[in-house]
Computed example of a mutant assay.
Amino acid sequence: MNRMIIVAALALATVLPAAAQDKMQLRIGTEGAYPPFNYFDSAGNLVGFDIDIAKALCDEMNAECTFVTQDWDGIIPALLANKFDAIIASMSMTPARDEIVDFTDKYYNTPPAIAVPKDSSLADASPESMADIILGAQSSTTHANYAEKFFPDTELRRYGTPEEYKLDLQSGRIDAAIDDSTVLSTWVNSEDGACCKILEVLKNDPIIHGPGAGIAVREEDTELKEKFNTAIAAIRANGVYKQINDKHFDIDVYGD
């Protein structure tokens, strides 16, 4: 009997590592500096809506996923250099990006907004009102592109991270900032953003913003793209997406 138990235990030990090896291994690239979507909390943990969505998709695909943080400016080159397998970092599916990488279906779609100090004299975000002010935006983003197109008489100041433009807006070195409405709303409603308010929520421009935020993969990874699409549809249908949405936001960020 003891011999049979030992043989069975050895057989199980042989099977389990093989099963673990069969699990798909994925490296997910993200920025880690874009609250509330992807950022490090006070304990040094990578958290946010993007991170929870990525984990849910990996569970749905039965994949073993690890996260790799990468500065925003270099995130697409890093994907192409095989530093990770997919980008889940609130990346808008713009036509220009679509020429370089392939995108899944969207997993959320929120509009941009303008934030200003609470004592700002700006009445609205029209091109006329925004003329001759200094506007901050994160570089290499759709929001910087939007500002260039719709506020031609505004001085645009580009920053490496949102944290940098927030500090300059707090200190009065710039007059306004443009970013995702959810990012700015979360900030101005926090203690850190008590200086400021939302001036206006803007409309998405389909050419600049595309149909929303998607997961970027290399163009040749069509099978991985379809697995992500199937998983996105699954978590939308089974309620997991709503649970994650409601954990982070009081609005539906999936959009139309």
Rank of each mutant, 00 (worst) to 15 (best):
M1I: 14
M4D: 15
M4Q: 14
I6C: 10
V7D: 12
V7Q: 13
L10Q: 04
L12I: 13
T14F: 13
T14G: 14
P17V: 11
A20V: 11
A20Q: 09
Q21K: 13
K23H: 09
L26W: 08
R27G: 07
R27S: 14
T30K: 07
F37K: 00
F37D: 00
F40K: 00
D41V: 10
A43M: 15
G44C: 09
G44N: 08
G48W: 02
I51L: 05
A56I: 05
L57V: 04
L57T: 01
N62E: 11
A63V: 08
T66S: 15
Q70I: 11
D71F: 13
W72Y: 12
W72F: 09
I76E: 02
P77V: 10
N82D: 15
N82F: 11
N82Y: 13
K83G: 06
K83W: 07
K83E: 14
F84K: 00
I88L: 10
I88F: 03
T94D: 03
A96E: 15
D102T: 13
F103G: 00
K106H: 08
Y108S: 06
P111L: 09
A113I: 00
I114Q: 00
V116L: 02
P117E: 04
K118N: 11
D119I: 03
L122I: 04
L122T: 04
A123C: 06
D124I: 08
A125I: 02
A125D: 02
A125Q: 03
S126F: 05
S126L: 11
A131M: 09
D132Q: 10
D132M: 12
I133Y: 09
I134V: 15
I134N: 10
N145A: 15
A147T: 04
F151I: 00
L156K: 03
R157W: 05
E163C: 05
E164C: 08
Y165H: 06
Y165G: 03
Y165C: 01
S171P: 02
G172T: 03
R173Q: 10
D175N: 14
D179M: 06
S181D: 04
V183E: 00
L184E: 00
S185E: 10
T186H: 08
N189G: 15
N189K: 13
C195P: 03
C196R: 01
I198P: 03
L202F: 09
L202S: 04
D205A: 06
V217R: 04
R218M: 09
E219H: 14
E219V: 05
D221F: 12
E223G: 11
L224Q: 09
F228N: 01
A231Q: 02
I235N: 01
R236D: 02
V240G: 00
Y241E: 07
K242Q: 13
K242P: 07
K242W: 09
K242A: 10
K247F: 02
H248W: 15
D250K: 15
D250A: 11
I251H: 11
D252A: 08
D256G: 08
D256C: 06
D256V: 12
D256K: 05
D256Y: 13
